[in-house]
Simulated scan of single mutants.
Amino acid sequence: MAEPLVYHLHDIVEMKKPHACGSNAWEITRVGADIKLTCTNCGRGIMMPRFDFNKRLKKVLKSADRAD
């Protein structure tokens, strides 16, 4: 069985499709039943159900709990 994906506040994630502004890097600003994302380029915010977020996520670019 695959381990569940865990997301934290302020993680930077890459989605499968880019945003209209051209960037596809998003910062997670709310975690719960819904996930709130803010575009790192233009600042636009969106909310989507966790199920949709899991389908559209490509990878985690930068984890907030790691000190880089």
Score class of each variant (00 low, 15 high):
residue 1 M to T: 07
residue 1 M to S: 12
residue 2 A to N: 12
residue 2 A to E: 13
residue 3 E to W: 08
residue 3 E to H: 11
residue 3 E to T: 10
residue 3 E to N: 14
residue 5 L to F: 14
residue 5 L to D: 12
residue 6 V to T: 14
residue 6 V to Y: 08
residue 6 V to G: 11
residue 6 V to E: 12
residue 7 Y to S: 05
residue 8 H to C: 12
residue 8 H to W: 11
residue 9 L to K: 05
residue 9 L to D: 02
residue 9 L to G: 03
residue 12 I to R: 12
residue 12 I to F: 09
residue 12 I to M: 13
residue 12 I to C: 07
residue 13 V to R: 01
residue 13 V to T: 04
residue 14 E to Q: 13
residue 14 E to G: 02
residue 15 M to G: 07
residue 15 M to V: 11
residue 16 K to G: 04
residue 17 K to P: 05
residue 18 P to G: 12
residue 18 P to L: 09
residue 18 P to C: 11
residue 19 H to K: 09
residue 20 A to H: 13
residue 20 A to E: 14
residue 20 A to L: 11
residue 22 G to S: 05
residue 22 G to C: 06
residue 22 G to N: 05
residue 23 S to G: 05
residue 23 S to D: 07
residue 23 S to N: 09
residue 24 N to E: 07
residue 24 N to V: 00
residue 25 A to F: 04
residue 25 A to Y: 05
residue 26 W to M: 04
residue 26 W to L: 03
residue 27 E to Y: 04
residue 28 I to Q: 03
residue 28 I to H: 05
residue 29 T to H: 07
residue 30 R to Y: 11
residue 30 R to M: 12
residue 31 V to L: 03
residue 31 V to I: 05
residue 31 V to W: 01
residue 31 V to Q: 01
residue 32 G to M: 10
residue 32 G to R: 08
residue 32 G to F: 09
residue 33 A to D: 15
residue 33 A to F: 15
residue 34 D to M: 15
residue 34 D to E: 15
residue 34 D to C: 15
residue 36 K to E: 05
residue 36 K to G: 04
residue 37 L to G: 02
residue 37 L to D: 00
residue 37 L to R: 02
residue 38 T to K: 08
residue 38 T to P: 00
residue 38 T to D: 03
residue 40 T to Q: 12
residue 42 C to K: 09
residue 43 G to V: 09
residue 45 G to F: 07
residue 46 I to A: 12
residue 46 I to W: 14
residue 48 M to Y: 09
residue 48 M to N: 09
residue 48 M to D: 06
residue 49 P to I: 00
residue 49 P to F: 08
residue 49 P to M: 10
residue 49 P to E: 13
residue 50 R to P: 02
residue 50 R to K: 14
residue 50 R to Q: 10
residue 51 F to I: 01
residue 52 D to P: 09
residue 52 D to G: 11
residue 53 F to K: 03
residue 53 F to Q: 03
residue 53 F to N: 01
residue 54 N to W: 08
residue 54 N to E: 15
residue 54 N to Y: 08
residue 54 N to D: 13
residue 55 K to G: 01
residue 55 K to C: 06
residue 55 K to T: 04
residue 57 L to E: 04
residue 58 K to C: 00
residue 58 K to D: 03
residue 58 K to I: 04
residue 58 K to V: 00
residue 58 K to E: 02
residue 59 K to T: 03
residue 60 V to R: 02
residue 60 V to Q: 00
residue 61 L to H: 00
residue 61 L to C: 01
residue 62 K to I: 00
residue 62 K to L: 04
residue 62 K to T: 00
residue 62 K to R: 05
residue 63 S to L: 02
residue 63 S to F: 03
residue 63 S to A: 05
residue 64 A to E: 00
residue 65 D to T: 08
residue 65 D to G: 00
residue 65 D to M: 07
residue 66 R to G: 04
residue 66 R to W: 05
residue 66 R to Y: 04
residue 67 A to Q: 07
residue 67 A to F: 08
